[in-house]
Design a protein around this nucleic acid. Sequence first.
DNA 1: AAGTGGTCTAGACCACGTG
DNA 2: ACGTGGTCTAGACCACTTG
Lengths: 235, 235
Amino acid sequence: MLKYQQIASDIERYIEENALQQGDKLPVLEALMARFEVSKSTITKSLDLLEKKGVVYQVRGSGIFVRRHKRKGYISLLSNQGFKKDLEGFQITSKIIEFDVRKPTQEAADNLNISQEEDVYYVKRVRYINGQTLCLEESYYSKSIITFLNKEIVSESIFDYIREGLGLNVGFSDIYLQAGRLNEEEAGYLGLEKGFPKFYVETLFHLTNGQPFDFSKVTYNFEQSQFFIQANGPL
Amino acid sequence: MLKYQQIASDIERYIEENALQQGDKLPVLEALMARFEVSKSTITKSLDLLEKKGVVYQVRGSGIFVRRHKRKGYISLLSNQGFKKDLEGFQITSKIIEFDVRKPTQEAADNLNISQEEDVYYVKRVRYINGQTLCLEESYYSKSIITFLNKEIVSESIFDYIREGLGLNVGFSDIYLQAGRLNEEEAGYLGLEKGFPKFYVETLFHLTNGQPFDFSKVTYNFEQSQFFIQANGPL
DNA sequence: AAGTGGTCTAGACCACGTG
DNA sequence: ACGTGGTCTAGACCACTTG
């Protein structure tokens, strides 16, 4: 692991273990340089990483401070895939509705940047949180990149498998959000009524080299789902 | 303006002017160093900034590439306040419903981290996009930070005024999202029916020094609003 | 004025991808 | 093997905040 990543994770753990709150001050740069025995740039890089993650904010002339929102039970839209309802204590399970290899829809092919002749793995599943329906998810995985999937993998964490099993590096993603009304099928799977509101998210995941490998369409049970984003400054 | 910011904006303009597409390759680091006559770290910092903004992605051993999603007409949730429906051509107007100085609600005071005795500016307005209702917005501004507001400012861009008029630096924000159902009042302002879906967003804006100064509650017309986020890698 | 974070440099060395 | 981006250093100087 790289120095700056290790330091960032050490600092993050330190904040966690000491239950530091929003606005609490961290040691000054000089102290951190000495503590970790690295140059200023390395510490700076660690802190920039933590700032990007929304863990700290740095104020010139003043110090380095902990950033921590107060609300609990929100799903982070940025800490890519793998939910992680804030501070855990939430049990996520899945039921597979469909799983096969097929030709993609026009829409999926367009997003994945492949032709409709190429194979994709198709996964449709309902996800539950503490026993309640959380969402209905349909995903298309480029078979040319995700060369193998099976039911066992699909019922667990697909992304862990992609990283560890296939050795691929997940990079950036484009996320599209909107509200709408449940159709009959969605309502059925989520145990709600047709016409109820839905929180609808499409995500296109890319590898670090820019290749799109997963296009997902997710319909959330609006009663179970609250999301949050930590944004950084007017870019 | 700092070198790395200037370079970043030059590169961004270059991409814009030449209408580069997703996956198009930019000149290599060496070339950029020579072109802008700066050190490697400075170029790197510029590119990191652009990567954070979702404008490029960098692949070690391969190159620097343009990142550009295809969909048009989506509102960016990250390019903080000031909407900017993608690639413009959209006219945003506002109608003020209420504007005054008052004591905050418990909720607003909690979020702004002030007592209920302190004054806030309260603004309630409906925003329109191309003549259609876009959203109903309620905002609370800490009067101790935003020392002055008036109707003229409120009907234009409040954030521009905060930056230029007051000389304050807008920093990070916490954004909370959910779907729900319109109540009677919201439906009225948006010209929809009670019980229809809504896309609901609360945002807490902070200055760069960490002080919260604006708590906003926004109810979007679900028919007019699609949002997107460009996320970067599993943090 | 002192303290603290931010920018920028020049250069060594490393790690990943491609041909 | 080579090209390309990434990490890390040591140090000079700058800019904002606080007392």
